[in-house]
Amino acid sequence: MVRLLDALDALPDSVRLRARSYDLLHLTPGAPVVDVGCGTGLAVAELAGRGARATGVDLGERMVAEGLRREPGADLRVGDARELPFQDGELAGYRAEKLYHELDDPAGALGEARRVLAPDGRVVLVGQDWDTFVIDSDTPALTRTIVHARADLVPAPRAARAYRALLLDAGFDEVTVEVHTSVLTGPLMLPMLARTAVAARDAGAITEDDADRWIAEQAGRARTGRLFLAVPLFVAAARRP
């Protein structure tokens, strides 16, 4: 999983999207910022490279341990998005990428974001809407069933489309939302697509034959350069009054 995440993070679209998220934080040199759901700490390192005083928080102990192995001096901590290790108003920036769909209570996490941000502090959220994956296939109805069945297994699959409402409800203002679509055509995504079909099969949404047939088609597309996956990524930014 870490190798796959590393490969995805290195894609040009991913690099540009992270840079855009950093720009939206409006950070000044030395400003304290947290990256929540930091994984192995890539964004923490890049934010520090921009002069910020960056901390990463992630619930996964293995991810944090791997991040500290890569960057022993990084400030990476095991912690929960709903209970961050900061004082009220301590931070100038809060960033979370591909995290909120994993949370049972996205609104509670944003309430915690508001608590740790100082007035005029900035929040930036980045994430995909699991219902809107676009996959080319010879069986579009089956593909639609697979995508929606996989989405239903995610705690908050439509959190990204709700970013604006969530931010407003949490008391943030100057809310903006952008959409950046990543188009993925190489074999890198084949294992993820296969797991998507297997998850739909295990949930009872499709049969084993359906899953095998769909995976075989996608494998054939990968071999012939015809695999196509488009993922709209929503980027929301706001200010704490």
Rank of each mutant, 00 (worst) to 15 (best):
P29W: 04
P29H: 12
P29R: 07
G30I: 05
A31M: 09
A31T: 10
A31E: 08
P32M: 00
V33W: 00
V34P: 00
V34H: 02
D35N: 07
V36Q: 06
V36R: 04
G37T: 06
G37I: 04
G37R: 00
C38Y: 06
C38G: 10
C38H: 08
C38M: 10
T40N: 11
T40A: 12
G41Y: 03
A43C: 13
A43S: 15
A43V: 09
A43I: 15
V44Y: 03
V44I: 08
V44R: 10
A45M: 15
E46S: 04
E46R: 08
E46K: 05
E46P: 14
L47Q: 02
G49D: 07
G49N: 06
G49K: 04
R50T: 08
R50L: 07
R50Q: 11
G51M: 04
A52S: 05
R53M: 14
R53P: 09
R53L: 11
A54M: 00
A54K: 00
A54Y: 00
T55H: 14
T55E: 04
G56T: 04
G56V: 03
G56N: 06
V57N: 03
D58I: 01
D58Q: 02
L59T: 14
G60N: 14
G60K: 06
G60D: 13
G60T: 10
E61G: 14
R62N: 15
R62S: 15
R62M: 11
M63I: 05
M63N: 13
M63G: 12
V64H: 04
A65N: 13
E66A: 11
E66Q: 13
E66G: 15
G67K: 05
G67E: 01
R69H: 09
R69M: 10
R70F: 15
R70A: 08
E71G: 13
E71H: 09
E71L: 13
P72Y: 13
P72L: 12
G73V: 12
G73E: 13
G73M: 12
A74G: 04
A74S: 06
A74N: 06
D75P: 05
D75R: 13
L76E: 00
L76A: 02
L76V: 05
